[in-house]
C-alpha cells in the first residue's frame, strides 16, 4: 500500500516537474521571441545592405537547397498516400470525395507538418550547432564588442529565412504530392481525368484553407526558428553542451508543432 502511494507521489511529482519545466521553457522562448520581434521592428532599416544578403543566404539554405529532398518526399507521399487513396476511392465509387479528403489531409495537415519537420531536421539542427558553437567560442561577445546586435545580426535573418522557407516548401510539397498522386492514378489505369481531379480539389478548397495553411506554415516556421535560435544563442553554453541543446531543440519543436496543429484544429472545428 505504502509503495503504491510512493509511486503515485513519484509519478505526480514527475508530471508536475515536467509541467513546470514546460511552462518555464514557454516563458523563456516567449520572452526571446518578443525581444526578437522588437529588434526586427526597430532595426528593420538598419544595415539593410548587410542584413538582406544574410536573409537571402538563409532562404537559400533553408529553402532552395531543400527542394530536392522535398521533391523526393512529395513524390513518396503522393504515391503512397494520395495514389492509394485515389485507388481506394475509385474501387468504392467515391472519387467525388477526393477533393475534400486531399484538402483536409494533404493540404491542411500533412504538407505543412512535413515541410516544417524537414526544415527542422536539415537546417534547424545545423543552426543550433552553428549558433551554439558561435556562442561557446565567443563570437557573440565579439559582435557585441563591435556594436552589432547579435539578435539583429544572427537571429532575425534566420527567423525570416526559416519562416519563408517553411511556407514556400509547403506549397512546393503540396503541388508535387498532388501531382505524383494523380500520376500514380494514371499509371494504375484509374479512369480519373486530370481536369476532374483538379476540379474536385478546387471545389473542396475554400478561402479559409488558404488563410489556415498560410497561418499554420508561418507559425511552424517562426516557432521552430525562434526555438532553434533560443537554444543556440540565448543562454550561455559550453562546446560540450551543444549536442544536448540540439536534441532539446528537436524535442521542443516537435511538441510545439503538435500544439500548434492542435490549436489550428480547434480553431477549424469551432469556427469553420
Amino acid at each position: 500500500m505504502r509503495s503504491g502511494v510512493a509511486v503515485f507521489e513519484w509519478a505526480t511529482g514527475l508530471i508536475g516537474l515536467s509541467l513546470l519545466r514546460f511552462v518555464e521553457n514557454v516563458r523563456r522562448i516567449g520572452a526571446f521571441s518578443l525581444i526578437t520581434l522588437g529588434v526586427a521592428v526597430t532595426k528593420a532599416l538598419v544595415a539593410h545592405r548587410v542584413m538582406l544578403p544574410a536573409a537571402q543566404q538563409q532562404l537559400a539554405r533553408a529553402g532552395v537547397r531543400l527542394l530536392p529532398i522535398i521533391a523526393f518526399i512529395g513524390v513518396a507521399v503522393g504515391l503512397v498516400i494520395v495514389g492509394q487513396t485515389l485507388s481506394l476511392l475509385a474501387q468504392v465509387g467515391q472519387v467525388a470525395l477526393t477533393g475534400q479528403l486531399l484538402v483536409t489531409v494533404i493540404i491542411r495537415e500533412v504538407a505543412p507538418f512535413v515541410a516544417a519537420m524537414v526544415v527542422l531536421a536539415r537546417v534547424g539542427t545545423a543552426t543550433v550547432v552553428e549558433l551554439g558553437t558561435a556562442r561557446a567560442l565567443g563570437e557573440v561577445e565579439t559582435l557585441e564588442a563591435l556594436g552589432i546586435d547579435p539578435i539583429h545580426f544572427l537571429v532575425v535573418p534566420r527567423v525570416v529565412g526559416l519562416t519563408c522557407s517553411v511556407a514556400a516548401l509547403t506549397v512546393y510539397l503540396t503541388v508535387i504530392t498532388l501531382a505524383s498522386g494523380w500520376i500514380f492514378a494514371v499509371l494504375a489505369d484509374l479512369p480519373y481525368p486530370l481536369s476532374e481531379y483538379l476540379g474536385h480539389i478546387a471545389g473542396a478548397l475554400q478561402w479559409h484553407d488558404f488563410v489556415l495553411v498560410g497561418a499554420k506554415t508561418v507559425t511552424f516556421g517562426a516557432v521552430s526558428a525562434l526555438t532553434v535560435c533560443y537554444h543556440g544563442l540565448a543562454r550561455p553554453i559550453r562546446l560540450e553542451e551543444v549536442s544536448l541543446a540540439t536534441t532539446r531543440t528537436v524535442a521542443h519543436c516537435v511538441v510545439a508543432f503538435g500544439l500548434i496543429d492542435g490549436f489550428f484544429l480547434i480553431l477549424t472545428l469551432l469556427f469553420l
Binding site: E141, A145, L146, G147
Partner: peptide, 19 residues
Amino acid sequence: LTSIRRRIGMLFEDGGHLF
C-alpha cells in the same frame, strides 16, 4: 550603449574570435 561600444576596440585572447 552601442554608440559607446563603437568608440572602443576590443581584442580578445585566443585568436581574436574571428568569424
